[in-house]
């Protein structure tokens, strides 16, 4: 069985240095586990990150469908669509938000303005690798 408390502890391991929050959520933005300064902050990040993810995912789907219809053929070059979105980086004046999928869920990291993009991506990928296997096992029950 999946223990949310343990996932929170794993997420807490990356919220050091310039990383201020790590959040695991479903695609509609509902929280599964998080490590952040406040509950409110985590809820807000999750809601907005999920919304941005859905929007860009849909845009990719639309482009892929249009490309396949126009070319009347499946072209690797136009593979922007379904299931193909790997990462989104939202860079703001006071911080950076990274979003990536794990199984049917989304993982979001937030860095402060001093954070380097490279370390944020490295932490995101490390978390993704670490959590993907156990989350894959429960994905059939999820959401």
């Amino acid at each position: 069985m999946l223990k949310p408390k343990v996932i929170s502890q794993v997420l807490a391991q990356v919220t050091t240095g310039t990383v201020t929050a790590a959040i695991l959520m479903n695609s509609s933005g509902s929280l599964l586990a998080f490590s952040a300064a406040t509950d409110e902050e985590a809820t807000t990040y999750a809601a907005i990150a999920a919304n941005i993810w859905t929007g860009y995912s849909r845009a990719g789907d639309t482009v892929a469908e249009k490309a396949i219809t126009t070319n009347n053929a499946y072209n690797k070059h136009d593979l922007v669509g379904k299931g193909q979105l790997n990462t989104i980086i939202v860079d703001c004046e006071n911080g950076t938000l990274l979003i990536t999928p794990i199984s049917h869920m989304l993982l979001c990291l937030v860095g402060n303005p001093e954070s380097n993009l490279g370390i944020l991506i490295a932490k995101l990928q490390a978390l993704r690798r670490h959590l993907s296997d156990p989350l894959e096992k429960v994905s059939e029950y999820s959401f």
Binding site: T44, Y45, G60, V80, G81, Q84, N86, I89, D91, G95
Partner: peptide, 16 residues
């Protein structure tokens, strides 16, 4: 309410 100030850029990485 993201609280991170003005958005400067968004990078979306797809498969292709």
């Amino acid at each position: 309410k993201l609280g991170l100030g003005r958005n400067r850029h968004i990078l979306s990485a797809y498969e292709a």
